[in-house]
Amino acid sequence: MARTKQVRAVAISAFFVLLVFVLYTSTTSRSAAVAPAGVPTAKSPVDASSLIDSTNDDKLDAAINNEIAKLQGEVADPKKVDAKKPAAGAVDKPVAAKGDSTPDDKKDDAITNVKVDPSNPNSPTVFDPAAELKLIRSMSPITIFSKTFCPFSKKLKALLKENYEITPAPTIVELDKHAHGVELQAYLAEITTRRTVPNVLVGASSVSRGGADDFVALHRDGELVNLLLEWGGKNLIVRKNDAPSNV
């Protein structure tokens, strides 16, 4: 009796195995008739939200990806079938459109288009030699552009200090100490045609009145006082000292 039960159980198991095999074969045949070769069916283990990146040839991958895209309601771009799926959490870098500035161009634009904030002492400024010269010359009718190490500049300054009383006192600009002395000297060379120091400007004119040798010659000839008064106008007072000159 027990043996008969065992035989019956085996027979029932075999029947179910055969039934599952027949159903599986039938389903596989229907799927192969509908879907293109190599394209995963609805029961494929491939996730419909992923693109295929395999070792297959490009045409096969493109066909598979197009089918996946259709399930998502979009058409895949065949040119992008080789693109790797971004890792989780990855952020795409922005791609500049044609004609956009590169980082270096933006940097150059930032330098070119400097905006000065007068209320901010740390705000960048662009040096304006013309404005600087106008400010300097407003301080006195006589302006001497000099350099601290220049012997000719020292000679001229000593000549005027020791032999003349000048009111207002000349404004002396030491170009080697000025923050923008190089630019200022280049601008002076442009408007006065004198590139060396000392360089003396008197009155409202931009004409250079000369350097040390010129002033020493005028001093010896006794013409310096009259010329300074003529060049400086009514705002300048010049008197010669009675002390003997060392020049």
Score class of each variant (00 low, 15 high):
residue 172 I to E: 14
residue 172 I to D: 12
residue 173 V to D: 01
residue 173 V to G: 02
residue 174 E to T: 06
residue 175 L to I: 07
residue 177 K to Q: 15
residue 177 K to D: 12
residue 178 H to A: 01
residue 179 A to I: 12
residue 181 G to T: 11
residue 181 G to N: 11
residue 182 V to R: 14
residue 182 V to Y: 04
residue 183 E to T: 11
residue 184 L to K: 06
residue 184 L to W: 07
residue 184 L to G: 13
residue 184 L to F: 04
residue 185 Q to S: 12
residue 185 Q to H: 10
residue 186 A to F: 00
residue 186 A to T: 11
residue 187 Y to E: 04
residue 188 L to E: 03
residue 189 A to S: 14
residue 191 I to C: 01
residue 191 I to Y: 03
residue 192 T to F: 02
residue 194 R to T: 14
residue 194 R to S: 13
residue 194 R to N: 14
residue 195 R to W: 14
residue 195 R to T: 14
residue 195 R to G: 12
residue 196 T to D: 07
residue 197 V to W: 07
residue 200 V to S: 07
residue 200 V to G: 05
residue 201 L to T: 06
residue 201 L to Q: 05
residue 201 L to K: 05
residue 202 V to Y: 01
residue 203 G to R: 08
residue 204 A to H: 11
residue 205 S to I: 09
residue 206 S to P: 00
residue 206 S to K: 13
residue 207 V to L: 04
residue 207 V to T: 13
residue 208 S to E: 04
residue 208 S to A: 13
residue 209 R to V: 00
residue 209 R to I: 00
residue 209 R to L: 11
residue 209 R to D: 01
residue 211 G to D: 06
residue 212 A to V: 04
residue 212 A to C: 15
residue 213 D to W: 08
residue 214 D to E: 15
residue 214 D to A: 13
residue 214 D to V: 13
residue 215 F to V: 08
residue 215 F to Y: 12
residue 217 A to S: 01
residue 217 A to T: 01
residue 219 H to R: 10
residue 220 R to H: 07
residue 220 R to I: 05
residue 220 R to F: 00
residue 221 D to G: 02
residue 221 D to V: 00
residue 222 G to D: 04
residue 224 L to E: 10
residue 225 V to D: 11
residue 225 V to R: 11
residue 226 N to R: 08
residue 226 N to C: 00
residue 226 N to S: 15
residue 227 L to N: 09
residue 228 L to S: 02
residue 228 L to T: 02
residue 229 L to D: 02
residue 229 L to G: 01
residue 229 L to H: 02
residue 229 L to I: 05
residue 229 L to Y: 04
residue 230 E to P: 05
residue 230 E to A: 13
residue 230 E to L: 12
residue 231 W to K: 02
residue 231 W to H: 00
residue 233 G to I: 10
residue 234 K to G: 15
residue 234 K to I: 03
